[in-house]
Write a protein that binds this DNA or RNA. Structure first.
Lengths: 163, 163
DNA sequence: TATTGTTATACTCTATAACTATA
DNA sequence: TATAGTTATAGAGTATAACAATA
């Protein structure tokens, strides 16, 4: 358990920070995946897709889901197909452009998501409970700088990006 | 590009922090994967395996690599096989126990890793260049608290964990 | 012609479990 | 019997590219 081994060289502080960032994220993500699997028989990408829909009751088109989840269109089709088969989301035609779908949570999907989101939140809170509220704030702010910079580097340009 | 959508509920600060942590890590990791692929035709797990070996010239046994990389044994066998086929690492028998191997970098592997590590470091430095040295320090320290706590929760208990 | 979404396919990464060979 | 490592297999998760329908 020490992924933090890639350190060496001229900027050891930056490298060490990156490796610690990666380790923390992996530890928490692994736990969340396992817990979602165990308690709700679902996966993180499916949870994320539902989380996007939960914020937009009227639904999102496939291309918008693809952009927000940062995955290609084919994957969104696959995830959506699964969730439709389970009755958690539905595709609704958009009048005026018959190529486009709005995807939205069904009522069952809303109920299921509420349960999952509640448990998910508790797992996250537990993982981060070593930090004081002030430290949570500081971390959030500093990571915000990193996020903005990296997005600029990668030319993502998402003014409508929230949080 | 806004994975940071799962927020809501009773502890929105913790959730927001987790989602930002995840977004930052994914953005950087994606870029590193793409760059390793493009410039060195390799992958992050292979790079990580070589990074572990670079610190231990005499080599590590398969089980130790498995522990350090946080993946199961079968995966280490597969990664090692690939790297052996390319002449970057070698398996050496251990006298006294014929079940055990020491895996270590070959000379070619050392040279290849030095190149990759140098480029890798520059990519990381660039991703984190929005932070002052002091902020890098703060982030590293706060994430250290998270890491320790999560490892305790998961019962990992790794006193020999470095960094 | 361009765009939206789907299909087909393949590759990386990972886990589990059965297996071989030593101890 | 227990341990070190391997093999076999399966399933996420993701990407690319060709495709159909519609604009």
């Amino acid at each position: 358990m020490d992924l933090e081994a890639r350190a060496h060289a001229e900027h050891p502080e930056a490298l060490r920070l990156w490796l610690r960032l990666l380790t923390c994220t992996q530890l928490i993500e692994r736990q969340l995946r396992a817990a979602l699997r165990e308690h709700f028989d679902t996966t993180l990408p499916r949870f994320d897709l539902m989380a996007q829909l939960e914020r937009v009751p009227e639904g999102l088109r496939m291309s918008e889901l693809s952009r927000r989840l940062m995955v290609t269109g084919g994957n969104v089709t696959g995830l959506t197909d699964q969730l439709v088969a389970e009755g958690l989301v539905e595709r609704i035609g958009v009048e005026g452009d018959r190529r486009v779908w709005r995807v939205r949570l069904t009522e069952a999907g809303q109920r299921a998501f509420a349960d999952m989101a509640h448990a998910h939140e508790q797992w996250v809170v537990q993982a981060l409970e070593a930090l004081t509220p002030r430290e949570v704030d500081t971390l959030h702010r500093l990571l915000g700088k990193v996020k903005t910079h990296v997005q600029t580097l990668q030319g993502v340009a998402t003014p409508e990006d929230i949080a």
